[in-house]
Amino acid sequence: MENAADDTELSFHRSGCRLASASQAPLYSLLERLHAVLTGPFDRQTIWQLHRQINQQAALIREADIALAGAEIFERASVAASMGTWRCELPSEQLTWSGGTYDLFGFHRSHGLVRGDILRTYSEESLARLQKVRSDAIETGSGFKLDAEIQGPDIGKRWIRIFATVERQNGEPIRLFGIKQDITEERTVFEHMRHLAEHDVMTGLANRTQFQVQLAKICGPSGSGGALMLIDLDEFKEINDTLGHGAGDECLIEFTRRLSTICQCADLIARIGGDEFAVLFSPATDRHTIERVAQRLVDAAKAPMNYSGSVFNVSASVGVAFAEGETPTALFTKADHALYAAKAIGGDAFQG
């Protein structure tokens, strides 16, 4: 087990410790000389030298106090900012943390720092990335910045940002040091904004932008292959016109529930228009399964829906197209033709 060192890890904090030691060392000699002057004959030169030495000693003590006070202020500010300093000696892997770093990981400050225990707090993906960038940094001597996910019984899931610098001596790495900062709130806001950019607000499904990105991945010579299913609700306009947009919204939300339940084998489900939906399947899903899903969607759409005491029904038309090296536009056009073929026979059916 590697014992945690004192929290005075910052350079000016260490300077404060050195100043404190420097101020103590000559103090005993100063007291001895002062005693000799007071008990001996009057000597103006000796008294002047003592006065100068006392002033120098006082200056050292003031510098030490300032350095230690600055380190304490930095430590308090670091904790308030949810960040802390860290150091890892190489090759021993001995760790030193400031108090703020203990708080980030939910460890008590008296907790012995065992690197294996700390690594187990990282998610599998974050740990793999951390080990890669750390190894590269030690090999090349360059620092790194990494966002990583950690988890613990006292902190739950948390995102931290790690800044690291490599210190070398005679060309050999001797230590890693830097700062770790809590970015959980920043990450939450980022994920929320990304979700809004990629998903439909009403239904929570992927939006047309995200659909286009995923469609491109299954198309073309380098695409993965798969299938595209397009769905359109047949009587949706009449619901809006007769029962109002509130009923129309409830219709879309309820159909989304049914669509999500039936298409659990799909890679992506998206709302790409008012009452238009798209579903992408990977090549792992065979044609028979996709056609069975299409028929189940047609059947599920017909189940009665309720809104403010009114019961109403809709039906769905479904078009299916299988990727065969086409461009995204060509595959979409092929599925769209199948969809309108289903509508041409009266809707409430699928074609493919």
Rank of each mutant, 00 (worst) to 15 (best):
298 V>L: 09
352 G>E: 03
330 A>Y: 05
321 A>M: 11
268 L>E: 07
291 E>P: 07
299 D>L: 08
304 P>K: 11
297 L>C: 11
324 E>G: 09
295 Q>S: 13
310 S>C: 09
272 I>F: 03
301 A>R: 10
339 L>V: 06
273 G>S: 03
334 K>S: 13
269 I>G: 08
261 T>E: 11
350 F>L: 02
350 F>W: 12
343 K>A: 07
327 T>K: 14
327 T>H: 08
344 A>D: 14
279 V>A: 08
335 A>V: 10
331 L>I: 11
282 S>D: 06
344 A>V: 03
351 Q>A: 14
343 K>C: 10
326 E>Q: 15
289 T>D: 10
267 D>Q: 13
328 P>W: 03
276 E>Q: 12
315 S>F: 02
263 C>H: 04
337 H>N: 11
281 F>H: 07
291 E>H: 15
323 A>K: 13
344 A>F: 02
339 L>T: 05
297 L>I: 11
329 T>G: 08
311 V>H: 13
258 R>V: 00
272 I>E: 00
349 A>G: 06
259 L>C: 09
342 A>E: 01
312 F>V: 01
260 S>E: 08
285 T>H: 14
316 A>N: 10
279 V>D: 02
284 A>C: 13
306 N>A: 12
323 A>W: 09
298 V>C: 12
310 S>V: 06
348 D>E: 10
267 D>K: 11
277 F>K: 11
292 R>T: 13
256 T>H: 00
319 G>D: 05
336 D>V: 03
264 Q>Y: 00
294 A>C: 10
304 P>V: 06
324 E>N: 13
301 A>E: 02
327 T>W: 04
287 R>K: 14
343 K>M: 06
312 F>K: 07
274 G>P: 09
318 V>Q: 04
344 A>W: 02
292 R>H: 12
300 A>H: 06
335 A>Y: 04
322 F>A: 07
296 R>G: 01
334 K>H: 10
281 F>Y: 14
348 D>H: 12
302 K>P: 00
336 D>M: 01
313 N>Q: 14
315 S>T: 15
263 C>S: 11
331 L>R: 15
327 T>D: 09
337 H>F: 02
340 Y>P: 02
314 V>E: 07
274 G>N: 10
280 L>E: 12
284 A>P: 05
305 M>V: 00
344 A>K: 15
319 G>W: 08
285 T>A: 15
339 L>R: 10
283 P>Q: 10
328 P>G: 06
257 R>W: 00
317 S>K: 13
314 V>H: 04
287 R>E: 12
294 A>L: 03
312 F>C: 01
293 V>K: 05
350 F>E: 01
329 T>N: 13
334 K>M: 11
282 S>L: 01
336 D>L: 01
352 G>L: 05
311 V>W: 06
327 T>Q: 12
339 L>E: 02
301 A>M: 03
347 G>H: 04
293 V>Y: 02
268 L>V: 08
295 Q>W: 05
303 A>T: 09
345 I>Y: 07
321 A>K: 12
350 F>D: 00
292 R>D: 11
280 L>V: 07
351 Q>Y: 12
